[in-house]
């Protein structure tokens, strides 16, 4: 077993590139998606948001002009306002309702499966279906308003879809209906992940249940809450189908949202520059939410 044996081996030295070649070939779709679509397309859009593209994209740079226009367009400002209201309310209500439901279901109740099935089924439905059915329920002539009026309270008014001031809350009701089930499920999984012994310890210490939740359980579930928060937030920025189905942005411009602005500018109004600028703003919004999360999630891990 010396140099002679060594040389007689017809061992091919696997080069860096051909080692596990099959794995690399199989990963080509993933690499293309990551590089061409997620990085390439995003960069393309960002770059073109600084051009004066209208009907067709063209590389004639105009600096921040598109953004100046964007932030002085009333429709965009309304969209951002709506997104803020919808976002903040949706965040708070989804978390609160989701947690209440999860906590109730976690109390070892009967019919837990039935309740969970009812709370979660809207999540299986599309935003289009959600929007349409709530459009019908909130219909002033036949829906909720008419039902209350029939009971004798004839001056009762609840017509959010035709009232510019509160239309966004009408959409919120539908959005909450569709999305809280998911958050409930995630939080319920988090609750189930908490050690039974914690509950036993608090029982022996005689701590009331609500206090246990508030001061023991919720702090323990911080990572789960952060995940839920990011999910809700990332979903909010993308809100589009729901508005299209429920109000088409109306009455007037009252329920416009950024995602719809982008679509309309890009594919209907043939004002690409505005569409690119608006979508880049959406990307900025997502990253404002995402960066602290990524930092919390992955920033700490680097140290070990």
């Amino acid at each position: 077993m010396d140099d002679k044996t060594l040389n007689s081996q017809k061992n091919k030295r696997p080069t860096r590139l051909t080692r596990h070649l099959n794995a690399k070939i199989a990963s080509v779709p993933m690499i293309l998606t990551a590089v061409v679509v997620f990085v390439g397309c995003s960069v393309w859009t960002i770059v073109h948001s600084f051009t004066k593209s209208r009907m067709l994209p063209k590389l004639e740079f105009v600096g921040f002009k598109q953004y100046d226009r964007l932030w002085s367009t009333k429709r965009w400002l309304v969209s951002v306002d709506n997104l803020l209201i919808y976002g903040i309310c949706s965040l708070i209500f989804t978390l609160v309702i989701g947690f209440i439901l999860a906590a109730l279901l976690d109390r070892k109740i009967r019919f837990e499966n039935t309740f969970r099935t009812i709370f979660l089924y809207p999540f299986a439905l599309s935003f289009i279906v959600t929007g349409l059915v709530w459009q019908w329920i909130l219909n002033p002539d036949f829906g909720l308003q008419s039902l209350v009026r029939e009971t004798g309270w004839s001056s009762f008014t609840f017509d959010p879809l035709n009232n510019p001031d509160i239309v966004i809350y009408g959409i919120l009701i539908a959005g909450l209906w569709q999305g809280t089930g998911l958050i409930m499920c995630i939080l319920l999984a988090g609750l189930r992940g908490i050690d039974e012994d914690i509950w036993k310890a608090t029982r022996i210490d005689g701590i009331p249940i609500w206090k246990t939740y508030l001061f023991v359980i919720i702090p323990m579930m911080k990572p789960v809450f952060i995940t839920a928060l990011v999910l809700i937030a990332a979903g909010i920025v993308k809100v589009y189908d729901l508005v299209v189905a429920q109000t088409s942005g109306g009455p007037g411009l009252a329920s416009e949202v950024p995602a719809k602005y982008v679509y309309d500018k890009m594919f209907l109004a043939q004002n690409l520059g505005q569409g690119f600028a608006a979508s880049t703003m959406m990307l900025v919004m997502v990253f404002i939410i995402l960066i602290p999360y990524l930092y919390l999630q992955y920033g700490g891990k680097r140290h070990d």
């Binding site: 993933m30 990551a34 590089v35 997620f38 859009t45 569409g275 990307l283 997502v286």
Partner: peptide
Amino acid sequence: FYNILIIGAFIPYQVMLYP
């Protein structure tokens, strides 16, 4: 590539629609 993919999941579709 995997990390790009996961972060990509958070990019609003609107950014990539046109390209």
